[in-house]
């Protein structure tokens, strides 16, 4: 602690120096992930001649699309200082499996019901966490267990197929085609991801809600004292997150052609990774959606690059973990040097 005070003191002494380096640090803290991205891309060019091609980048951005859609929502939770939504995997599975079992009503009603089911999870999370201040990680973890048990019980541990459930009608095929629809050779999931991230960026930086969320994320008690309706804002954040998770779940389910309780497994930690790499701090109130996009792309490029080098699956895990910590360190270190964060 003494060290910290010292550091801050020496920083304020060298104001002239601070101004210059401050700007760089500011950019590093906001968009540092893009620096890493450029380094990775340059490395890639040297490693394989096929790496630097439009096709390859298309693959990377496509592979990250589902994750990006999920992150666009979950980032609101991280931004509001509530870490992560551990019930995201089951929200994804739920919306997918409900959509498929309602597919005989037609594609649009089925999608609405499916997304509604997912949002319901978010509403429950939002009320319990927003109003009663339950611990966000543990509560969403418990929700994950409970909903998972319900899905398994209702569908008796089986998986269901869109073409069977729709009785061979066009709706089933339309459902599996959701993730197979292309616009100018690029799947629509990519456009939706970018659209959601841009809207998210707009909401966070330009609207009243975004600013209130920032205050909640920085200090929830202060936010209460300033008269912000904290519990309603947190509820909205969870609804946004569950909507995005439901949407991602529909894409994953449509891509896998099967509705099952295991769809979306592992997406919780992957989403946190992408969001945090992208410069959002877990303590809340900091970061932006452009950074989150960078986080999603970095994960994609990293795995792409390692396949090109020919690194085995196990070594890939080690490298991924190390680079993850490194990037977060760069982000938080520059924030700290700016005196903006004490965590």
């Amino acid at each position: 602690m003494n060290k910290k005070i010292e550091k801050q003191g020496s920083v304020s002494q060298n104001i002239a120096h601070e101004k210059q380096s401050g700007k760089i640090l500011d950019i590093t803290s906001r968009f540092g992930v893009y620096g890493i991205l450029i380094v990775l891309i340059i490395a890639g060019i040297f490693i394989n001649s096929n790496f630097f091609s439009l096709n390859n980048f298309k693959n990377v951005i496509q592979a990250g699309a589902f994750l990006g859609i999920l992150c666009a929502g979950m980032a609101f939770i991280t931004y509001s200082g509530h870490f992560a939504d551990m019930s995201a995997p089951i929200t994804m599975a739920l919306s997918g499996i409900v959509t498929i079992s309602c597919i005989s009503f037609g594609i649009v009603p089925a999608l609405l019901i499916g997304i509604g089911a997912g949002v319901l999870v978010g509403v429950i999370n939002g009320i319990v966490i927003g109003k009663f201040k339950a611990n966000p990680i543990i509560w969403t973890l418990a929700m994950n267990f409970v909903v998972s048990g319900i899905i398994r019980w209702v569908y008796s541990n089986k998986q269901i197929y869109p073409d069977v459930e729709s009785g061979g009608s066009i709706a089933g095929e339309m459902f599996t085609n959701i993730s197979r629809t292309y616009l100018w050779g690029i799947p629509i999931s990519v456009f939706i991801m970018i659209g959601l991230l841009l809207i998210g960026q707009f909401v966070l930086s330009k609207t009243r809600y975004g600013k209130q969320l920032k205050i909640i994320g920085s200090n929830i008690d202060t936010a209460k004292l300033t008269g912000i309706n904290v519990s309603r804002n947190i509820l909205i954040a969870y609804i946004i997150a569950s909507f995005a998770a439901a949407l991602a779940g529909i894409f994953v389910t449509s891509f896998g052609k099967v509705g099952a309780y295991y769809n979306g497994e592992g997406y919780d930690f992957r989403a946190v990774t992408a969001i945090v790499i992208g410069g959002m701090t877990l303590s809340g109130g900091r970061g932006n959606m452009i950074g989150v996009l960078g986080g999603v792309l970095t994960i994609g490029i990293l795995s792409n690059l390692m396949t090109f080098i020919g690194i085995g699956t196990f070594e890939q895990q080690i490298v991924t973990g190390a680079i993850f910590i490194l990037i977060v360190w760069i982000n938080s270190n520059s924030l700290r040097k700016l005196g903006r964060d004490d965590a």
Binding site: V128, K131, F132, K133, A134, N135, I138, W139, L141, A142, M143, N144, F145, V146, V147, S148, G149, I150, R152, W153, N157
Partner: peptide
């Protein structure tokens, strides 16, 4: 019982405890 009941019960106990704690503070 099948595994689904076990995971459900586990989640329910966890949820009840978290909720109980949160309500007390609330």
């Amino acid at each position: 019982t099948g595994y689904e009941v076990q995971v459900f019960a586990n989640g329910l106990v966890l949820a009840a405890v978290v909720l109980y704690e949160a309500l007390a503070i609330y």
